[in-house]
Design a protein around this nucleic acid. Structure first.
Lengths: 146, 146
DNA sequence: TTTCTTGCAAAGACTTTGCATCCAT
DNA sequence: ATGGATGCAAAGTCTTTGCAAGAAA
C-alpha cells in the first residue's frame, strides 16, 4: 500500500510544527519536486537541477538541507549504492529492495516476503535484534543485454 | 571451502608477473598484514596503522595502491557499508553476506543458499542477467543488547 | 639503466557547515 | 524584532593522482 502524497505532506507539516520550523518558498518547491520523483532514487545534484528549472536561484545547500530534513522527518530514505554518492527516495513505508542495472543504472524495486522471513531467521540464529537490511541485486537489464 | 594463504600468494604472484610489476618490501609487508586480518573488513586507515606498527615509514598511498592492486588481482574485495568509507576483505571465493551490529560495528558473515536461489529467481523474473548482489542485515548484537 | 614504487603533497569528488543576509511569523 | 532559512563560500572527509626521488630487475 503506497503512502499518498497527502500523507507525506501531513507528515512534513507535523514535523515542521513540532520543531518550530518556518515554511519557505524554496523548501516548498524542493519538496514538491522531490515528491514528483516517485519511485526514483535521486541524487542531490539531479534534484537541484530539476528544482532550478523552476527557480534558477536555488542553492545546492538548500536542497541538501531540505533532503536532510525529509530524512529526519522520516519522509525520505538516504541510500548508498556502490558509486559513492547518496541517493534519496520517498520512504514508502512498505519495504522493498533493489535490482540495479550496472550498465544504465536503472533501478527496479521488488519485494519478497520469503527472503524477509529468512533474514529474520538468520538474525535470530545469531541472536541479533534486527533493525534494518539492505538487499541489492546487480546485473544487466533486458535493454542492455543486446 | 576457504581459500588458503598459499593460494592467495600464488594468485598475487601470477598477477605480478603477468603485469610486469616488481616486488617491494613495502608491498610484501602490507599484503602480509592484510592476509593476517582473515575474516576482517578493514579500513585503509586501520590497515595503515597495523602496517606502521611493523614499519613506521609506510605511507597511506602505498597501502591504498596495494589494496587496489589486490582488488584488481581478484584477491581482495572492496565494499561500501553505510558509513561512506571503503572496507577491504580477502576474497574468499565462497559467497557470503553480512550481519552488522550498528552499535559496535562488529561484522559477522553468513551464507544462505535459499536466499541465493530466490535472488536468481527474482532476477530471472525481471529478465536480468545477475552479476552480483549485496545483502546486509543491520541490528544489535547480543553483547550490545544489554 | 630502465621501469616500477614510494611517500608526500596536492587535487578531486562529495558532503557539511559558518556566516551575513533575508524572510516568515 | 526574532529566529529560522537561504546562498555562498569555505571547510571537512575520504579517495585518487602527479611527481621527484628511491628501489628492483
Amino acid at each position: 500500500m503506497a503512502i499518498s502524497t497527502e500523507e507525506l505532506y501531513q507528515k512534513l507539516n507535523d514535523y515542521v510544527s513540532k520543531n518550530n520550523l518556518k515554511s519557505t518558498k524554496q523548501r516548498d518547491l524542493i519538496v514538491e519536486t522531490f515528491f514528483e520523483q516517485k519511485g526514483k532514487h535521486i541524487l542531490i545534484e539531479e534534484l537541484l537541477e530539476k528544482v532550478r528549472q523552476k527557480k534558477a536561484s536555488i542553492g545546492y545547500a538548500t536542497v541538501y538541507r531540505t533532503l536532510m530534513l525529509l530524512v529526519d522527518a522520516g519522509i525520505a530514505h538516504q541510500r548508498q549504492f556502490n558509486d559513492g554518492q547518496s541517493r534519496f527516495e520517498i520512504n514508502s513505508q512498505e519495504h522493498h529492495d533493489h535490482l540495479i542495472c550496472t550498465e544504465c543504472n536503472r533501478i527496479i524495486e521488488f519485494e519478497n516476503d520469503t527472503i524477509e522471513k529468512l533474514q529474520e531467521k538468520i538474525a535470530a540464529n545469531h541472536r541479533f535484534e534486527l533493525t534494518g537490511h539492505k538487499l541489492e541485486l546487480y546485473g544487466t537489464c533486458p535493454d542492455c543485454q543486446k
